[in-house]
Design a binder for these strands. Structure first.
Length: 480
RNA sequence: GCUCCCUUCGUCUAGAGGCCUAGGACAUGGCCCUCUCAAGGCCAGUACACGGGUUCGAAUCCCGUAGGGAGCGCCA
């Protein structure tokens, strides 16, 4: 648990500015777990005054799509995680889409071929699958059996002549220890013998993840890689590739995975799992970022933070090693907090789609100011919209009892007061009170129910200011 | 199957052998305030997965056990 290595490893340094990256594959919408990784990566760069880079890992043409690529960028931007270089912000280290970097990869493939660090493999996916299964059945780890490892030039030529296409496999050296210091999890050591020869170039000529990811980190000058724990045991492969190419390896920090309330990996059955889904539900970027910021990370600051404050408070040494549970209830708390801190104009913009189109600007403001404390999600505003601008709200049985107890005279007095002082709740309450002798709960509760149909809700005075002319009077008069 | 990782209140976590009868935040419950809800103020309950060691002393170090997770792909 000694953390001294961490602090040294990630200390901001003038000589080597921190460069971090987020490297998603556009094969789906931005997942919460990835968003969290992106946030940590962004914060690591910002806290050090470094650079944050976005790189699109679209080497798998079949699974990648333009739409997801666009969506992911939109969601990242929405979260406020702006990249200093990446798609739309090209510089001399780009392009930032791996599908456009084939020339660079080709050069490195050539280097590896010349130094005999890779070899052509003609095994078919089916053969490999069979091999894996039989190894598993025999109680062994499923590794590449080395079938094509020592093919002669003549044998390879024969295979090609027979129409077979080859992948390129990395020749993993035997008995080589691979060690690195993970800036989240501490010193790691692996033995190369635990790793089977792996594919660096697919049969279709495209670069495989282990290769392109590692090579690009080096080419783009990435100093710190923040990624999910699922990559931890694969890191030695990338270090091996980089070493074979004589390229520098970044520092790696593997963060714990995000899991659902039941401890299983966060998936569809836990409900919404993408940034886009939460965004569409009306959650704010601030709420989402604040929640993700605390998942697996302890913050010295307890309140709602903006990204600048988060960058100050972020410390990789305070990243936990245990997987973190995503709890929608906690997210709601941040959402409530973020709505509370919005200015009226911000709430106005946030709730614009939920407001009737024909409202005057002052009425819109009055309505927003009245209900904002009772709104967590835009959906909630719809309910109040109906109550304030819709037809007289129905009264359920328990509430009707309160109405009945107040009596017709009470509402006659209230309606009269509303006629004299339309829209002025304070005057209505005072006049009704003095006319009926009622006060406190006995006065306000029947009024609230008659006006809104509910026993609880926003303060009545502001609510009445937003109501259309005559609404209050009519609602009170209906019980007289 | 093999290798690796993880386990402190409901949740996120603090914790680097004595500062720990384990701290904070949020959630929960109670009280106050209040026309209600919310907000705010005050108070409360709740956790070191289990079992062995090492030590004068263990949440912290070691070994097991249990539970959870990851990797072993022409996915990333």
């Amino acid at each position: 648990m000694t953390e001294t290595y961490d602090r040294a490893a990630i200390a901001p340094s003038a000589q080597a500015p921190t460069v971090t990256r987020f490297a998603p594959s556009p094969s789906g919408n931005l997942h919460l777990g990835n968003a969290r990784t992106a946030l940590f990566s962004y914060l690591l760069a910002r806290r050090a005054g470094g650079r944050f880079i976005l790189r699109i890992e679209d080497t798998d043409a079949l699974r990648s799509s333009e739409e997801f690529c666009r969506h992911q960028q939109e969601d990242l931007t929405w979260l406020g995680l702006n990249w200093d270089a990446g798609p739309g912000r090209e510089d001399d280290r780009g392009p930032y889409r791996q599908s456009q970097r084939v020339a660079l990869y080709a050069g490195h493939f050539l280097t590896l071929e010349h130094s005999d660090r890779v070899y052509e493999c003609f095994c078919t996916p089916l053969e490999l699958e069979v091999s894996r299964k039989s190894q598993l059945a025999a109680g062994n780890p499923p590794r590449y059996p080395g079938t094509c490892r020592h093919l002669t030039a003549a044998q390879r030529a024969a295979k090609r002549a027979a129409g077979l296409t080859a992948t390129l496999r990395f020749r993993v050296p035997a008995g080589e220890p691979v060690e690195f210091v993970d800036f989240v999890r501490g010193p790691q050591n692996f033995l190369s013998d635990e790793i089977g020869d792996f594919i660096v170039r697919r049969a279709d000529g495209s670069a495989a993840y282990f290769f392109s990811n590692a090579v690009d980190d080096a080419a783009m000058g990435i100093t710190h890689v923040v990624r999910g724990e699922d990559h931890l045991t694969n890191t030695p492969r990338q270090i091996l590739i980089l070493k074979a190419l004589d390229l520098p390896a970044p520092r790696y920090g593997h963060v714990s995975l995000l899991v659902g309330p039941d401890g299983a990996k966060l998936s569809k059955r836990h409900g919404a799992t993408t940034v886009r889904e939460y965004r569409e539900q009306g959650f704010t970027a601030t709420a989402l970022c604040n929640h993700l910021f605390r998942l697996g990370h302890s913050s010295p600051e307890n309140g709602l933070l903006d990204l600048t404050a988060m960058a100050k408070a972020f410390d990789p040494a305070h990243l936990g090693r245990a997987s973190a549970h995503f709890d929608a209830a906690q997210l709601r708390v941040w959402q409530k907090e973020s709505v509370m801190q919005m200015s009226t104009d911000e709430v106005l913009e946030w709730l614009a789609p939920q407001l009737p189109a024909d409202l005057t600007q002052p009425t819109r403001r009055a309505f927003i100011e009245a209900i904002r404390a009772n709104v967590v999600l835009p959906q909630d505003a719809l309910e109040w919209r109906e109550i304030v601008f819709g037809s007289p709200p129905p009264v359920a049985a328990p509430e009707q009892a309160v109405i009945d107890a107040a009596g017709k005279d009470f509402f006659a007095a209230a309606a009269q007061a509303a006629t004299a002082h339309p829209g002025d709740f304070k005057a209505i309450a005072t006049l009704t009170g003095s006319a009926t002798g009622r006060k406190g709960k006995g006065l306000y509760q029947p009024l609230r129910i008659a006006l809104t149909g509910l026993t609880h809700g926003p303060e009545l005075a502001p609510l009445l200011r937003a109501m259309p002319e005559g609404t209050a009077r009519a609602r009170l008069a209906r019980f007289a």
